[in-house]
Amino acid sequence: METILSIENLSVEYTVGKKIISAVRNVSLTLNKGDSLSIVGESGCGKSTLGLSMLNLLPKEARITGGKIIFHNQDILRFDKKEMQKIRGGKIGIVFQDPLSSLNPVIKILQQIRETLKIHRRDYSEEKIGKLLEAVQLNDTKRIKNSYPHQLSGGMRQRIMIAIAIASDPEILIADEPTTSLDVTIQKEILELIKKLIRELNLTVIFITHNFGIVSDLCNKIAVMYAGEIVEGGGISEILKNPRHPYTKALLSAIPKKDNLVKFNTIPGSVSDLASLPSGCKFNPRCPRKIAKCVQEDPQLECKENRFLRCFNP
């Protein structure tokens, strides 16, 4: 299989006031052509920071302190502004959670899609734009092209974002919580659309989400993040069927099931302050399987039979 993107030991820090927050630590990932990888974790685990660093879109408070992001044998972290622009929105497309804040409110949809096509030197005729809208199942193309974002519903706006993301035939699509702000029925439709596009356009996808339900029938690989590190990773069905890291287990069991119950399963405590992380395993203060070693040493992400695990006592 052809490796299309690989991240090697990436670390990202934010400087907030006098504090240094290490949002991503030593993350390594490999993405083969045709993969759909989900990065799952709770707020503050670094999943969005990871997504943004792949496009060099990190805010100015952030600093990449180490590592490489290799896209087609080139380290894109060394790219200058111009080179990066070709990749961003060109070879790698992105869809964010909130389509209203990612679309320009005072520009008509037609113009917004055309802009992307122009920048990446593609055919920007109305016909092509019409086709793009049809690809994302927006059929009333005439009306939509002449609409402003506020005249469309949330689901339609997200479809427009997807149309823009796929406009320049990207190889990789990064979707950062693309359905979180939508109603459940619309969420399902958008996921079906993304599934269809993956198939038809042969896209490689990185799906960033906190929802295991979304990824289970969309992705083939999963990486679970906690406090800036990947704690478990591998094939999605193996991990969901048989999670080994105590955090993955706890997270899966906290999902509400439909049966009436007396108590929800929770994870005791809360996520450690990223500015002052505990020694040893970052999950140890909340872990039910903690042993002495977990406090003394940092567990490494180890690979066994295609599964990655960062735990001394699974």
Binding site: A254, K263, I267
Partner: peptide, 14 residues
């Protein structure tokens, strides 16, 4: 809220 925090709050309600 995050899933694990959701569970904590719902437990509080219960």
């Amino acid at each position: 809220l995050d899933i694990s925090v959701q569970a904590q709050i719902m437990n509080l309600f219960l």
